[in-house]
């Protein structure tokens, strides 16, 4: 047995993984199998390149509790590689499955490539300073974060669906009080323009400078970890970085951001990066396309005005 297996508890992420899966399927000459919970999605997955959809029928509400069931299925199918959506739930599920199957796991791969029978992944290490290239063992699991790939395009691809009735695991846990996080503005992860504030702001009144600039640009405001966690000027869902939000807007303007590696790891996929900071040796300038060394109290109002 062989094949590429794809799973995410979020259907749009599965569609993105299909893009990576199709390239891989071509170079490895393998079939693409999708594991999902809703029969409704299977037609769309097939159009987007799935050869086979395994539809698990259950109504257990906690996605993580399916890890054992998915592990059991994968054990029987003996896949070449398993791609799992790198949402936070997905990474937990992937880790549990990997342990159950005693196989390898690459979390947060940003690239995956197949050639002959060899599959290689790339992921970042040391908070983003380095890239680790790994050659996967047979049956390794790889998680890929949402929005790393665009959703696969519809085609006239044909495939089939298999329904599997499953018994969820005994409930050793209880889940309650599920609250969607209400983003104060729009979600920064999908914003087209971002203004980012860092500790270079002298006090909370300086947020006004960022707000005026953001308003002019129709941008969202985000921040570094310490602005959210130490100063609490913005909520924690607004901080960009390795352990925070990963963003890739068309324009990213930072003000008073020094550019620590963990922060840069969250924003370096932005198309154009602009930095304003007083310290000319700040690492943010190495990560920026355009930089102005200067006092943000002077530069930012000028910029807001000039953008007229």
């Amino acid at each position: 047995m062989a094949g590429i297996y794809i799973y995410s508890e979020e259907q749009p992420v599965t569609e993105q993984l299909l893009t990576a899966g199709k390239t891989l399927a071509n170079s490895l000459n393998e079939k693409i199998n999708v594991i999902d919970f809703s029969e409704q999605d299977s037609e769309s997955f097939i159009k987007k390149g799935a050869d086979h959809v395994l539809c698990l029928k259950s109504d257990h509400p906690w996605p993580e509790s399916y890890a054992q069931i998915i592990a059991d299925i994968l054990k029987e199918k003996d896949p070449t590689v398993v791609l799992i959506g790198g949402t936070l739930r997905g990474k937990t599920t992937a880790s549990i499955i990997a342990a159950k199957l005693q196989t390898g796991l690459v979390n947060n791969a940003f690239a995956i490539e197949g050639s002959g029978s060899v599959i290689e992944t790339k992921r970042i290490m040391y908070s983003g300073i380095a890239v680790c290239t790994e050659e996967l063992c047979h049956g390794s699991i790889v998680t890929i974060e949402p929005r790393t790939f665009d959703a696969a395009q519809d085609s006239d691809h044909q495939g089939d669906t298999e329904n599997i009735d499953i018994q969820p695991e005994a409930k050793t846990i209880t889940v309650g009080n599920v609250c969607p996080i209400v983003h104060q503005d729009n979600d920064i992860a999908t914003a087209e323009k971002l203004v980012c504030v860092g500790r270079g702001l002298s006090d909370q009144n300086d947020m006004k400078l960022a707000e005026e600039l953001a308003e002019k640009l129709h941008a969202q405001i985000c921040c570094t970890r310490s602005v959210a966690e130490d100063y609490h000027w913005l909520t924690t869902d607004k901080y960009v970085g390795l352990s925070g939000a990963k963003v890739k807007p068309n324009l990213y303007i930072s003000m008073g951001v020094s550019g620590q590696v963990q922060h840069v790891a969250g924003m370096r996929d932005s198309k154009v990066i602009v930095a304003v900071d007083t310290n000319e040796n700040a690492p943010i300038f190495a990560a920026a396309d355009y930089g102005i060394v200067g006092d943000l109290h002077e530069i930012i109002p000028l910029l807001t005005k000039e953008l007229g």
């Binding site: 906690w62 949402t87 936070l88 739930r89 846990i173 889940v175 009080n177 599920v178 969607p180 996080i181």
Partner: peptide
């Protein structure tokens, strides 16, 4: 967990 919070016991 990204788009939501939940209490798990």
């Amino acid at each position: 967990i990204g788009n939501c919070t939940e209490d798990v016991t």
